[in-house]
Amino acid sequence: MRFSIYRFDPDKDEKPYMQDYDIQLDPADKMLLDVLIRIKTVDDSLSLRRSCREGVCGSDGMNINGRNGLACITPVAGLKEPVELRPLPGLPVIRDLIVDMTQFFKQYRSVTPYLVNNDPPPETERLQSPEERAELDGAYECVLCACCTTACPSFWWNPDKFVGPAGLLQAYRFLADSRDQATAERLDDLEDPYRLFRCHSIMNCVDTCPKGLNPTKAINKIKGMMVKRTV
């Protein structure tokens, strides 16, 4: 099977190029990451991030045949040949498939990504009904792989101003939490032509999320909360 992989090492390459690897698949090569690790045993210069190899750590986001995904949970069988692998789009490349995620995490940190509750904590847990807790489902499971945000044209144009789908999903995770008391401040912070409203519901994020999450839905709920507080 042929893999065509984006290569760039600023230490020696003037510009990026695509390198082809022809690999005889063996039965243990179930996921794309298995193959990449095997390629690395013969060419140790191929650089990528990886860790849990089961889709929970979010390290190995990359562009696979034009679509962002996690290599460790992308089955090799069924990929169109040659399999073209590129770094996640819209972020600066450090080397090969490794991108600089500074901007992505800056946007994440910008949404006050922690619970705000200024009441003195009770001796035991704060109570939350199963229904209230269910509001967090689909919002707290994000693995911060950046597949969604780097698939979003609005983020490509305004990475410094638009929070992006991953950051907004995180913002919603706290807006939706019955224990959080900063709803007004959170909404004020997002009420801005860019931070939230650059989302034009293109829905690339939903299409690409390897965890099956729906950032657009969360974004629409935030918009709904804004409308609700103005009426």
Binding site: Y114, L115, T124, E125, L127, Q128, P130, R133, L136
Partner: peptide, 20 residues
């Protein structure tokens, strides 16, 4: 320490009575 994690915002599943 578990109550403390809950106060930090950890999204534990809940029982009908609202407890962890």
């Amino acid at each position: 320490v578990v109550y403390e994690l809950e106060h930090f915002g950890m999204p534990f599943d809940r029982l009908e009575n609202g407890k962890i």
